[in-house]
């Protein structure tokens, strides 16, 4: 019999079952907050940056299975990356890392990319306020 949730790849289900990096970071260097209740997905992404490198990332998400899996995956992907490298992460890269998403769930990967960009923007805004350059 066909797997009930063959809607999602094994990788998506694995991240959904055991999401990585759930939670908040105390005194984060950047917070991204995206999504809205109307579409049913809200993502919060926290990053800790050290010497232009993202050393930690955590998330909190209200949303469907794909929203949770993409949140989990994007936090895994950014850890250890420089700000410039992190900005290169596209929604498609997140989806591909999860072995694909159903077409109607691709917006979840867009949300993950936006959450990351929003967290980095927040980090840059804060850096500028401290007169530090943000590349």
């Amino acid at each position: 019999m066909r797997d009930v949730w063959s809607l999602y790849s094994d990788k998506v289900m694995e991240h959904f079952k055991n999401p990585r990096n759930v939670g908040e970071i105390e005194n984060p260097d950047g917070i991204g907050h995206v999504g809205n209740p109307v579409c049913g997905d809200i993502m919060e992404l926290y990053i800790k940056v050290n010497n232009n490198t993202i050393v930690d990332a955590r998330f909190k998400t209200f949303g469907c299975g794909a929203a949770i899996a993409t949140s989990s995956m994007v936090t895994e992907m950014v850890k250890g990356k420089s700000i410039e490298e992190a900005l290169e992460i596209s929604n498609r890269a997140v989806a591909e890392a999860l072995d694909g998403l159903p077409p109607i769930k691709m917006h979840c990967s867009v949300l993950a990319e936006e959450a990351l960009k929003s967290a980095i923007e927040d980090y840059c805004a804060k850096s500028k306020r401290r007169n530090n350059e943000c590349k």
């Binding site: 949730w5 289900m13 959904f16 049913g40 997905d41 209200f62 949303g63 469907c64 299975g65 929203a67 949770i68």
Partner: peptide, 10 residues
């Protein structure tokens, strides 16, 4: 409250 239906369903 605070949780989404599909993720509960899954």
């Amino acid at each position: 409250d605070f949780v989404e239906g599909e993720s509960m369903l899954l």
